[in-house]
Design a binder for these strands. Structure first.
Lengths: 359, 359
DNA sequence: CCACGTACGGACAACGTTCTCTACACTGGT
DNA sequence: ACCAGTGTAGAGAACGTTGTCCGTACGTGG
């Protein structure tokens, strides 16, 4: 006979009390305790009171793991994000958390620092936890391997009744069971670029990430299309495409550009954080914003309002993104088809791009 | 006989494959599959390969819940925070997450918006999940009820081998099994206030939260002690104590003060976010920083460097706070005594408080 | 050729719940 | 007085793992 693993000896009193302890103390059966806790079956008032007292006394809490195994659902969702410290992602995380909590779900988090290997590992962990849905928040490097991997994951999750949810990434193609909630990178960048051109800017320095990154791809494409539509040829030498989205990278890249001949009148920064660095670089070069150089950003994080001059940027409804994602994923109808939702974005005008350019 | 709940009928193919499916496909017993997965027992190469192929084919992942029930540990930690959107908390969260991941633990999150009821509910949820430790991040409203509640929770968690960890809150008193990792609010505020007084400021407007909130209590007490030590009586009418820590509240409170007679030369904002609002208020009143009004903040979040002029503030090692908390809690020795750790803080000087005051 | 160690694999209890089935004591209608 | 119905409680299988115990096949040394 297999021996009881948790001998009373090896860990005296150092264990959580179980439903059995409660039943014994209250002098009832396991079933009765279970019913008092679940409240899904009539229990006589006197019995109920006795059980409740025992629960109180023993400080009993049900064991989720046993509950799930015994036929319940885990009521857990997982989300995976590059870095929780980014203001935009934090807002999306907040939306997911709030909406999940409203539905009685608890959240698992993992961060990846953009590493696909860690992303994969995190997803695996959440599959093990039987999360009801897995949210991937933020852009990704798009290529064939990525798509194959995601399609695979989407199908695995779907097969077990869970759901892959892409927040802020494009869909994977037809027939893949995935929920996608995007915001309009292309459209927002189009509007923002039009705004700049409308203010007379023709030579705009674009400071962004790598074009294989989906977010960059979308914003850059909106930029190009607007420039094209408005008759301003894009000078490829004014595309400053790097690999990261930090303030420091914005500062350095704009500083370097400013050291040579200044051949642009505006900066389109791909994120507000980069814009913050860009603005500091302009000031440190002894120039002013928007008089010498106009600057616009993207995301409309709180920082945008704190910069001086206030940053003209594109508002992205990150919190709503998170909420919408949870709603779609958790309340989705029985059908297993793909879902796609695109959230709008709009330009928020502040002072950082206010004056007419000298054409 | 109890019927199998998940009839093949009601959910065709919509279920995760189990170890049993793998065993059948590979033609081995459950034990063998378990051993291949765990890798803690010799399995012949040929058998191992067959099992691995079956796992691959069925896309099998172990069920955490069953694993935990079958004697394993959940390898889960939970953390609870007022709001993930705060930059400072986000950093602490990041520290916890990174350090927990390094130890193979996955994180559960919950947010409370500062509501003690929701905090309690979240803790309960994490007890149900059998989290190895529960981290409470950020200050709290301190009173007798709070202390009793926390002591109770600490003991409950301790009784089941888990641990309550307070990050950025004071200890609960002797004999309570709790891990505390604090940063020095009192000391940081003392140093910052000394800095201001050293620059000639005598009349300093303190803009902060409610003194029953532990963070406010600490910072305000450091402020008072420094003023006292340096021979500057604290004018109670210059204590602007409100209930929240938003940018808007900083803006409004300082704006209102500026509308009357300006009877202060510096603003001590209890957080950088409040300082951001305060700075905007000063500018909007047509005054300049630091020439007319010096401003200092607290926390040294990224915003502090983006403000213009750069914000003089107190650096708090939030990420390290999170890391230290995980280390203490997860690697703690067998003894169940309380642990206490205080992280230092230091003043970071930027331009927002640079000129000599007109005495 | 036999005893014996070694490498491997299977059977089965246990983990803490939930759910279904069954049992029992009343009640009230006939 | 009997039976159906109702309100309440218990017994026990099942959930998907892990760990322990126990076989069996295959060498290998005496």
């Amino acid at each position: 006979m297999a021996k009881r693993r948790n001998d009373a000896l090896d860990d005296p009193e150092h264990r959580q009390s179980t439903i059995k302890d409660v039943a014994e103390l209250a002098g009832v059966s396991l079933s009765t305790v279970s019913r008092v806790v679940a409240g899904n079956y009539p229990v006589a008032q006197a019995t109920r009171t006795r059980v409740e007292r025992a629960i109180e006394e023993l400080n009993y809490v049900a064991n989720t793991h046993a509950r799930v195994l015994g036929g319940g659902s885990a009521r857990t969702v997982g989300f995976i994000v590059n870095d929780v410290r980014g203001a935009a992602f934090a807002e999306a995380v907040h939306g997911v958390e709030q909406e999940a909590a409203r539905r009685g779900h608890i959240c698992l988090v993992a961060t990846t620092d953009g590493d696909p290997v860690r992303e994969l590992a995190a997803i695996q962990l959440m599959r093990e936890q039987r999360a009801a849905a897995v949210f991937l928040i933020g852009g990704a490097t798009d290529n064939a391997a990525y798509r194959a991997r995601m399609a695979d994951i989407a199908r695995s999750l779907d097969a077990s009744g869970s759901r892959l949810v892409l927040c802020g990434r494009p869909p994977l193609g037809d027939g893949i069971p995935v929920t996608v909630v995007e915001y309009d990178n292309e459209g927002g960048a189009y509007a923002l670029t039009s705004f700049l051109v409308g203010r007379g800017h023709r030579r705009i320095l674009y400071v962004g990430g790598d074009p294989t990154f989906t977010t960059t791809a979308g914003r850059l494409s909106g930029f190009r299309r607007a420039m094209g539509d408005l008759g301003c040829p894009v000078d490829e030498s004014l595309l400053e495409l790097g690999t990261d989205f930090t303030r420091a990278s914005g500062y350095e890249r704009v500083s370097a550009r400013l050291r040579g001949e200044r051949d642009f009148t505006a900066v389109f920064a791909e994120t507000d954080v980069i814009a913050g660095g860009a603005m500091a670089a302009v000031f440190d070069a002894g120039l002013s914003v928007p008089e010498d150089v106009s600057i616009v950003g993207y995301d409309d994080i709180p920082l945008a309002a704190d910069l001086r001059p206030g940053l003209t940027t594109v508002h992205v409804p990150y919190e709503e993104l998170g909420r919408a994602a949870v709603r779609s994923a958790l309340d989705r109808p029985a059908g297993r088809a793909e879902q796609h939702q695109m959230l709008g974005a709009h330009v928020v005008i502040r002072r950082s791009a206010e004056r007419q350019s000298p054409a």
